[in-house]
Amino acid sequence: MKKSDLFFIAAMLTPLSANATLSWSFTGSGQNYGSQHTFSGSSGAGSVSVSAFSTTLDSSGDKFETGTLGSWSGGIGVQSQEDGSFGSSPHHAFDNDGGANTTSDEGPGGDVDAAIFAFDQSVSLTSLSIGWDGTNPDYDADISVLAYTGSGGPASILGKTFTQLLSSGWQLIGNYSELDHPSNPTASINASNVSSSYWLVSAYTSCANANSSNSYVCVPDSNGSLDFGDDFFKISGLTGTVGGGSGNTGSVPEPSSLLLFTGGLLGWRLNRYSKAQAESNEALAA
């Protein structure tokens, strides 16, 4: 066996920590990514594909359509098909404030900007940070977070409502109120330690509270500080750990599986090496 093989296998056998903190940063300088873009994470975090959506399909019940994803110094934002030209403030952020040409909100679930974060491994997100929340003191940042915990991967969300998502494998992780940049830019999320490869983050909507116990209808949150409309924010970063909690784990092998596989490979190679050495010694003695 070559020394390089031994070094490789030893490295593979090094324990993989399920508690190592992973991070993804989304700050940029005015890039228009279209509907989707892939971002790299910190060491070991892998990449995440971010896709933009908004519930602007009003004719049939506040259903999702594609949006435009952009990145600025404050982070990524979503511009809906009703939010005017790219980069127009404040609608270039995640918001639930209706289109650029209206002063009317369309609650509880209309014109809500959202993004799906599709990671290349199962992760348990632990925090979400914003880098911008508008310049108007009346604006705030109330945020809804969902994770896909169904089997396999999620179906396309296009043409579906929030309540339909929650009846087909998506789960509310939590609603988080009144984040503020720079005084309170980070929320600790996912207290239940749910793991998934697919996460959805949006401006707050009470439709995120739909579940089987309330017949999948939009229900106001018990947190009185959560309100619909006038939420504007850009996401600057996420943190998490390697998936190990409950929920959808995708097809990424767990660290223990990798260790078992690599340990078996090491044993097989060492056994072959021992046999070859024994045969060589016998030949020399003959």
Results as ranks from 00 to 15, higher is better:
159 G>R: 15
284 L>W: 08
252 V>F: 07
205 T>A: 11
242 V>Q: 01
21 T>I: 10
44 G>A: 05
266 L>T: 12
153 G>C: 01
4 S>R: 07
152 G>F: 02
205 T>L: 12
62 D>I: 00
281 N>A: 13
68 T>E: 13
157 I>S: 05
246 S>V: 15
269 R>K: 13
185 P>F: 05
167 S>E: 14
262 T>K: 06
154 P>E: 12
130 I>C: 04
15 P>N: 03
226 L>M: 12
92 H>Q: 09
18 A>T: 13
123 V>N: 00
278 A>C: 05
12 M>P: 02
220 P>I: 07
101 N>Y: 13
182 P>W: 04
219 V>S: 10
238 L>G: 00
160 K>S: 10
41 G>Q: 01
72 W>L: 14
200 L>M: 15
243 G>Q: 01
74 G>V: 13
227 D>H: 13
194 V>Y: 08
167 S>Q: 08
128 L>P: 06
15 P>F: 00
201 V>G: 06
92 H>F: 15
69 L>Y: 10
252 V>W: 07
84 G>I: 07
23 S>E: 02
97 D>Y: 08
11 A>N: 08
70 G>T: 14
256 S>Y: 11
179 L>E: 09
25 S>D: 10
98 G>A: 11
70 G>A: 10
44 G>Q: 01
45 A>K: 06
3 K>Y: 10
192 S>K: 15
76 I>T: 06
127 S>G: 08
249 T>Q: 09
214 N>F: 11
175 N>L: 11
189 I>D: 09
240 G>R: 02
183 S>F: 12
117 F>K: 00
53 F>V: 07
251 S>R: 02
248 N>D: 08
6 L>T: 14
132 W>R: 12
130 I>H: 05
222 S>E: 10
238 L>A: 02
151 S>I: 04
241 T>D: 04
178 E>P: 03
79 Q>E: 14
281 N>G: 06
207 C>P: 15
239 T>A: 01
